[in-house]
Amino acid sequence: MAGCFITFEGGEGAGKSTQIQRLRTRLERLAQPVLVTREPGGSPHAEEIRAFILSGRAKHLGPLAEALLFAAARIDHLDKTIKPALKSGTHVLCDRFADSTRAYQGSLGNIDKALIDQLETVTLQGVKPDLTLILDLPAETGLARAGARQAGKGEGADRFEEEDISFHQSLRQAYLSIARAEPRRCAVINADQDPDEVEAAIWAAVRERLPQMTEHAVRPLDVA
Results as ranks from 00 to 15, higher is better:
residue 48 E to T: 10
residue 1 M to H: 11
residue 8 F to D: 06
residue 193 Q to I: 07
residue 51 A to W: 09
residue 42 G to E: 03
residue 201 A to G: 07
residue 60 H to D: 15
residue 49 I to A: 00
residue 1 M to Q: 13
residue 128 K to Y: 06
residue 194 D to G: 05
residue 75 I to M: 10
residue 197 E to D: 14
residue 88 S to V: 11
residue 71 A to D: 07
residue 185 R to Y: 01
residue 77 H to L: 05
residue 15 G to Y: 00
residue 124 L to R: 14
residue 96 R to L: 03
residue 136 D to T: 04
residue 1 M to R: 12
residue 12 E to M: 03
residue 39 E to R: 02
residue 116 I to W: 01
residue 200 A to N: 13
residue 116 I to E: 11
residue 40 P to S: 08
residue 12 E to P: 07
residue 204 A to R: 14
residue 106 G to S: 07
residue 99 D to Y: 03
residue 31 A to P: 05
residue 145 R to H: 07
residue 174 A to C: 08
residue 16 K to S: 02
residue 15 G to D: 09
residue 39 E to S: 01
residue 61 L to M: 15
residue 83 K to L: 09
residue 29 R to N: 12
residue 59 K to G: 02
residue 15 G to S: 10
residue 204 A to M: 04
residue 148 A to V: 12
residue 36 V to T: 13
residue 189 I to H: 01
residue 8 F to A: 03
residue 138 P to N: 05
residue 217 A to M: 15
residue 118 Q to V: 04
residue 121 T to I: 06
residue 30 L to K: 07
residue 85 A to W: 01
residue 197 E to K: 15
residue 2 A to G: 01
residue 98 A to S: 13
residue 200 A to K: 14
residue 108 L to G: 04
residue 7 T to P: 04
residue 136 D to M: 07
residue 90 T to W: 01
residue 13 G to M: 10
residue 201 A to L: 10
residue 152 G to I: 08
residue 167 F to N: 06
residue 91 H to W: 12
residue 80 K to D: 07
residue 83 K to R: 15
residue 222 D to I: 13
residue 70 F to S: 03
residue 199 E to V: 00
residue 43 S to E: 11
residue 100 S to G: 07
residue 215 E to D: 11
residue 134 I to T: 12
residue 110 N to H: 14
residue 64 L to C: 03
residue 155 E to C: 01
residue 23 L to E: 05
residue 130 D to S: 12
residue 32 Q to I: 01
residue 186 C to F: 06
residue 57 R to C: 02
residue 102 R to A: 10
residue 187 A to D: 11
residue 185 R to D: 05
residue 219 R to Y: 03
residue 54 L to P: 04
residue 160 F to P: 04
residue 109 G to M: 13
residue 191 A to E: 04
residue 138 P to Y: 06
residue 127 V to Y: 08
residue 85 A to T: 11
residue 205 A to K: 07
residue 32 Q to V: 08
residue 158 D to P: 00
residue 173 Q to E: 15
residue 222 D to L: 15
residue 112 D to I: 01
residue 6 I to D: 02
residue 124 L to T: 13
residue 95 D to S: 05
residue 212 Q to M: 13
residue 27 L to G: 02
residue 7 T to M: 01
residue 149 R to Q: 06
residue 181 A to D: 14
residue 89 G to P: 08
residue 86 L to Y: 00
residue 200 A to L: 09
residue 87 K to P: 00
residue 213 M to L: 14
residue 115 L to I: 13
residue 99 D to H: 09
